[in-house]
Write a protein that binds this DNA or RNA. Structure first.
Lengths: 218, 218
DNA sequence: GTAGTATTCGAACGAACGTTCGATAACTAA
DNA sequence: TTAGTTATCGAACGTTCGTTCGAATACTAC
C-alpha cells in the first residue's frame, strides 16, 4: 500500500485533459471498441504515460461516469433549492436541468447512458449507487405530482422510466443544427409527460400558461 | 465470383441456430465485447466452422439486425391492415405491436437498439433504410393524429422520437417478473403519449374507455 | 461403390489489445 | 549543486482478436 502520490496542480489538470479526450474517444467508438492507443493519440500522451494517471482503461470509464453523474446531481440539487413547491414546477425544472446538462455534455452523457453495463465490480457498484440516487430523486418528484393530482392509476416506476427513456434516448437522434435546444426540448417533453400530445392543442407556447398548473384541470 | 452455394434445409436451420446464439452473446457482452470464439462455444460449432456460414463477425450482426427489423415491420403491417381507421386506435396498435415484439424478442431488440452504430458500410446502409421506413410509418401515424386533433403546436419529429425513446429504453430496465407485460406496458405508454400522466386520473382501466377517442375531449 | 459436393475443424496467421518495465527527463526543495 | 520526487516514454510482454488454410469427414446422386 503506497501513500497517495503528491500531485502538482498541473497534474490534476492533465488528468482532466486525458479524461476529456477519453470521453470523446468512448463517445466515438464505444468503450469496448476504443483502445488505449486511441486515447493516447488523441491526448498526445504516450501509451505508457497514460498509466501514470490511471490504473486501467476501466478506471477511465469509471472516472468519466462518476464525474458526469456527480456533476449532474449537484446541479439538480442546486436548481431544486431555488425552485417553488409546486410538484409540476419542480418536475419541469428537473426535466429542464437534465436536458440542459445532457446537451451541454453530450459526449459524457452518451458514455454514461450507452456504457451503463460496461463497468465491472468494484467500479460498477459505485456508479450504480449514483444512478439509484438520481432515479429516487425523479421518482419522488413524480410521486408528489401523483399525490397532488390523485393519479391513483399511475404506475410511478413505469412513468419515471418512460420519462428517462424520452430524455436519454435523445443522444441517438438529436441534431443540434436541426432540433430544438435544451429549453425548448424540455418544454416539449414536459408537455408530453404531463398532458400527452394534447398539450400542444392550441399554440406552441401554451406551455407558458401551464407553468403553474394544469390548464385543463376542472 | 462464386455461384450461390446450394444449401440443404438443415444448413439454413443451422445458420438460424448460429444467429440465435450470436444474438445471445451480443446481448450479453455487446458487439465489440463479444468474440467469435464466444459464439463458436455457445453454438457448439468450431471457430473455423462458423466461417462456412458467415463471412465475418459483422455479417452476423447485420443478419441479426436485418431479421429483427424485417420481422417487426412485417408484423406491424399485418396488424395495421386489420386495424380500424381511427388515428388513435392505429397508434395504440402500433405501440402494442412494437412492445409485444420487443419483449418477445428482447435479446434481438437490445442488439438492434444498442448496436445501432456498430455496423459499417455497406451493411450499415441497408439497416438504416429499414429504420427509416419504420420511423416513417410511426411518423405518419402521429401526423394523422395531429391533423385530426388540430395539434398545431406539436413537433412531430420530437414527439415520435420521444415515443421511440420510451419504448426502446425499456431494455435497460424492464424486469419480466416485476414489471407489466407488453399489453399493460403498451396501455401505459400510449396513455402517457396521448394524455400524459393525467391519463391515469380515475382508474387503472380507464384506458379501455378511451380506446375509441379522447375521454377528456369536449 | 464411386464421384462430387457440402460440411467441419485443428492449427496457425498477423494484427491489435491492455498492461508493464526500466531508463530518462523534468521539476522541487535544501 | 545536489538529492529526491514527479512525470514521461520507447520497447516489449503475454494474450486475445478476427480470419484463413488445408485436410478430413459426411452426405447425395448416379
Amino acid at each position: 500500500m503506497a501513500t497517495a502520490v503528491q500531485r502538482r496542480p498541473a497534474t490534476t489538470q492533465k488528468l482532466d485533459h486525458i479524461l476529456a479526450c477519453a470521453t470523446r474517444v468512448f463517445y466515438d467508438k464505444g468503450y469496448e471498441g476504443a483502445s488505449i492507443r486511441d486515447i493516447a493519440q488523441r491526448s498526445r500522451v504516450s501509451l505508457a504515460g497514460l498509466y501514470y494517471y490511471v490504473e486501467s482503461k476501466e478506471e477511465l470509464l469509471y472516472l468519466i461516469q462518476k464525474h458526469a453523474f456527480t456533476t449532474l446531481i449537484a446541479r439538480l440539487e442546486e436548481q431544486l433549492e431555488r425552485a417553488g413547491t409546486s410538484p409540476e414546477a419542480r418536475l419541469r425544472l428537473f426535466i429542464r436541468t437534465h436536458l440542459e446538462y445532457f446537451l451541454q455534455n453530450r459526449e459524457a452523457m452518451k458514455v454514461l447512458s450507452h456504457e451503463a453495463e460496461s463497468l465491472r465490480p468494484p467500479f460498477a457498484g459505485e456508479v450504480a449507487e449514483l444512478k439509484r440516487a438520481y432515479y429516487r430523486r425523479a421518482r419522488n418528484l413524480v410521486e408528489d405530482l401523483k399525490q397532488e393530482r390523485g393519479l391513483k392509476g399511475l404506475n410511478t416506476r413505469v412513468a419515471v422510466l418512460s420519462l428517462f427513456g424520452m430524455m436519454n434516448w435523445i443522444y441517438t437522434w438529436h441534431n443540434p443544427g436541426r432540433d430544438p435546444n435544451a429549453d425548448a426540448l424540455a418544454e416539449h417533453i414536459a408537455g408530453l409527460f404531463l398532458d400527452g400530445v394534447g398539450a400542444a392543442t392550441n399554440s406552441t407556447h401554451r406551455h407558458k400558461a401551464s407553468r403553474n398548473g394544469r390548464p385543463r384541470a376542472g
